[in-house]
Amino acid sequence: MGGGGGGEGEPEFQIAPMIDVLLVLLIFFMSITSAQVLRIDKDIKLPVAADAKKKEDKNTMFEAAINIRWLSGKQESVIKLDDREMSNEEIVEALTQRKNNNPTYRCVIRGDRDTPAVEVQKVMALIAQSGIDDISFSALNQDG
């Protein structure tokens, strides 16, 4: 007869398929985590807000991270959508397309603490041009 084991006794437990499944899951979660980390500009020093609350990570696939880094030597800002530096027109176009694909799409602005408010207002205007009205700001609840 076909099947597992030798007839009587306990059925054999195959460990190799379990290891395969675990490795696939590990690779999947590593790739998702690294994609989320790439969206964050490490050179940005976020402002401190005493009442800042930890973000819930349930809908991170449906939000854009807009990084605003202030170059004090040049007195200008560098704007990145997720991990790519883009022109204002490219940002509006990309956000409009994402908003059209998902009406609940939102943006998180990660502005450097030295960035003038005028630069943040410009980014907010770009987001508004794309039709997105759900905007959040990243901040730390303590300096560190």
Rank of each mutant, 00 (worst) to 15 (best):
M1G: 15
M1I: 13
G2S: 15
G4P: 08
G5Y: 01
G5S: 12
E10P: 00
P11G: 10
P11A: 10
A16H: 02
M18Q: 15
I19K: 14
I19N: 07
D20Y: 10
D20H: 10
L22K: 12
L23H: 10
V24Q: 13
I27L: 14
F28I: 11
F29I: 09
F29A: 05
S31D: 02
I32P: 00
S34F: 11
A35K: 14
Q36R: 15
R39N: 11
I40S: 02
K42C: 02
K42R: 10
D43S: 14
P47W: 04
P47N: 07
V48K: 08
A49G: 00
A49V: 15
D51S: 15
A52G: 05
K54A: 14
E56H: 07
M61Y: 09
M61W: 08
A64S: 08
I66S: 05
I66A: 06
I66N: 07
I68C: 04
G73V: 03
G73H: 13
Q75S: 08
S77M: 10
S77A: 12
L81W: 08
L81H: 03
D82F: 10
D83A: 10
E85G: 07
M86G: 03
S87V: 02
S87A: 01
E90A: 12
E90Q: 09
I91N: 03
V92G: 01
V92T: 04
L95R: 03
Q97C: 00
N101W: 02
N101A: 10
N101Y: 04
P103D: 14
T104G: 01
R106M: 09
C107A: 14
V108A: 14
I109G: 04
R110G: 05
R110W: 09
G111Y: 05
D112N: 03
R113N: 05
D114E: 12
D114M: 11
T115K: 03
E119A: 08
V120C: 07
K122D: 04
V123R: 03
M124L: 13
A125I: 04
A125G: 14
A128L: 09
Q129G: 02
Q129H: 06
I132R: 07
D133V: 15
D133S: 15
F137I: 06
S138E: 13
S138V: 04
Q142T: 14
D143C: 00
D143V: 01
G144S: 12
